[in-house]
């Protein structure tokens, strides 16, 4: 099966982007970009789509505290 051959590193970009769009916190999204090269590549914005790491999703005051709840 795909999962055992290539693993999550090779999750198709379209699916990974779809997953990342469901992660509202910028710090969490940045962590995803730092996982591996192929996951970072998913952050390249295709034409007509909103960038994954630019729009402020949460007001600054609502950002998570280090060690606080996610």
């Amino acid at each position: 099966m795909a999962a055992t051959l290539d693993g999550w590193k090779c999750l198709p970009t379209v699916l990974l982007r779809s997953v990342i769009r469901r992660v509202p916190c910028e710090a969490d999204r940045a962590s995803v970009a730092l996982v591996c090269r192929s996951w970072r590549a998913a952050f390249a914005t295709p034409p007509g789509e909103a960038p994954l790491l630019l729009p402020p999703q949460l007001p600054w005051l609502l950002r998570p505290l280090p060690g606080g709840p996610a």
Partner: peptide
């Protein structure tokens, strides 16, 4: 996709790598 996103939230890059069994390249 919602389920997979839940597996990422609130984690460091190292922790995410561990959850998804990905090597840092």
């Amino acid at each position: 996709c919602h389920k997979i996103s839940e597996m990422m939230k609130g984690k460091s890059p190292d922790q995410i790598r561990e959850v998804f069994n990905i090597k840092n390249d």
